[in-house]
Simulated assay, not measured.
Amino acid sequence: MKDYKRKQLLERVEREGSTLGADIPDEIEVQGETVDLHQFVFEIKRRDKVPPGERERVEEAKKNLRRERLQRKQRIEDEETGMTFEEGEELVESIIGIDRALEALQSLGPSSIEQEAQAKEAADKKRWMKFLKQALGKEDDTGKRGGY
């Protein structure tokens, strides 16, 4: 494969938004083991939060998916593999599928401390504004404006 084609493939892998519209692969071989990836992600995502008993399994799956993603990307980068452009395209599609699965699994984890702090701050501001409106007579207890 020509160098510029390899660069095109690698650019697609790293492109922001590359997972938009991408499907999670039904099956994928990860670390030499075939995984029903779509089914696994679907089963975990249908719950609001990862149950404590499943948390370790999900973290292990994410770690293995990240490792597999890196290995596949390195295969594209390696000029010695003698890979064709078509084989590279297949690898890119599988990497994007892995990224899509990782995004889905990542969104299930506990929210970051920053996100929690922002949500609390927004709730505090909302309560404060409601209090001020009530105190200044701009709004009664039912949420309707007073004086009309």
Rank of each mutant, 00 (worst) to 15 (best):
K138W: 11
V30M: 02
R57C: 10
Q74Y: 06
V92Q: 00
A122P: 00
D99I: 05
F40N: 06
D99E: 08
S107I: 11
A119G: 04
R57Y: 11
A104G: 08
K45Q: 08
Y148H: 12
R100G: 05
S18K: 10
G88P: 04
K73M: 13
K7S: 12
A22Y: 02
M83P: 09
G53Y: 14
V50Q: 04
E68W: 00
G53S: 11
D3M: 14
E59P: 07
L20Q: 11
K120L: 11
D141L: 05
L105G: 03
A101M: 00
A123G: 07
Q115L: 13
L65W: 02
A123K: 10
D124T: 13
K49A: 11
M1Q: 09
E14C: 10
E77L: 01
D78T: 03
T142D: 05
E116G: 12
R57N: 12
E86L: 14
E60G: 13
K133S: 01
R46N: 07
F42H: 13
A22T: 03
V30K: 07
E54V: 12
E87P: 03
E114S: 13
R46W: 07
P25A: 07
N64H: 12
L132P: 04
R72N: 07
K63H: 12
L108E: 05
R66K: 15
E103L: 06
K2H: 14
K62A: 14
M83F: 06
G82W: 04
Q74G: 08
I28Y: 00
K120C: 03
L91D: 07
D78C: 01
P110F: 11
E68P: 04
Y4T: 15
A123E: 14
T142G: 08
E11T: 15
E87Y: 00
G143P: 08
V58I: 00
R69N: 08
G147K: 13
T81G: 05
V50C: 01
E87D: 05
L9I: 05
G17S: 02
D141V: 09
I76M: 01
M1F: 04
E54P: 08
E54R: 15
E59Q: 09
S111K: 15
A117T: 06
D99G: 07
Q134V: 10
D3T: 15
L65S: 05
N64E: 15
E77Y: 00
K73F: 07
E86D: 09
E14N: 14
T34P: 09
Q39W: 06
A117V: 12
D141Y: 10
L9M: 15
T34L: 12
G82T: 01
H38V: 07
A104P: 05
M83Y: 02
E86I: 13
F131M: 11
K2V: 08
G82Q: 01
D124K: 12
T34S: 14
